[in-house]
Amino acid sequence: MPQPLVSIICLCYNHECFLPEALDSVLAQTYPNLEVIIVDDCSTDNSVRIIEEYVQRYPQLRFISTGSNLGNTRAFNMGWRASHGQFILDFATDDVLLPERVARQVEQFQRLEPEYGVVYSDSEYISDESEHVYFHSQKYKAAPDGDVFAEVLGRYFICPPTMLIRREVFEELDGYDERLAYEDFDFWVRSARKYKYAYLPQVTTKRRLHSHSLSSGWYRKGNQLLASTVEVCKRAAALVQTPPERAALALRLKYEARHAYLTGNFNEAEQLLQLLKQTSGMPFLYRFIRQLNRHKINLGFLREGYHRLRYRQ
Rank of each mutant, 00 (worst) to 15 (best):
I8V: 08
I8A: 00
I9N: 00
L11V: 09
N14H: 05
L27F: 00
L27P: 00
I37C: 01
D40H: 01
D41I: 01
S43P: 04
S43R: 00
D45P: 04
R49I: 12
E53N: 11
V55C: 06
R57F: 03
F63N: 03
T66L: 09
S68L: 14
S68W: 12
L70E: 03
M78A: 06
F87L: 04
A92F: 15
D95E: 07
V96W: 02
Q105V: 05
F109C: 03
Q110P: 01
Y125K: 09
I126S: 05
D128N: 15
S130G: 13
Y140M: 09
Y140S: 07
K141G: 09
C159N: 13
T162G: 04
R167Q: 05
E171Q: 09
Y176V: 10
W188A: 07
S191K: 03
L200C: 06
T204E: 08
S216R: 10
R220M: 14
L225Q: 11
A227D: 09
S228I: 01
V232Y: 06
V240P: 05
L253Y: 08
K254W: 09
G264I: 05
L273Y: 07
L275Y: 08
M282H: 12
M282T: 15
P283S: 04
F284M: 14
F284T: 13
R290C: 09
L292Y: 07
H295P: 08
K296E: 12
L299F: 11
E304S: 11
G305Q: 13
H307Q: 14
Q313M: 12
Q313E: 14
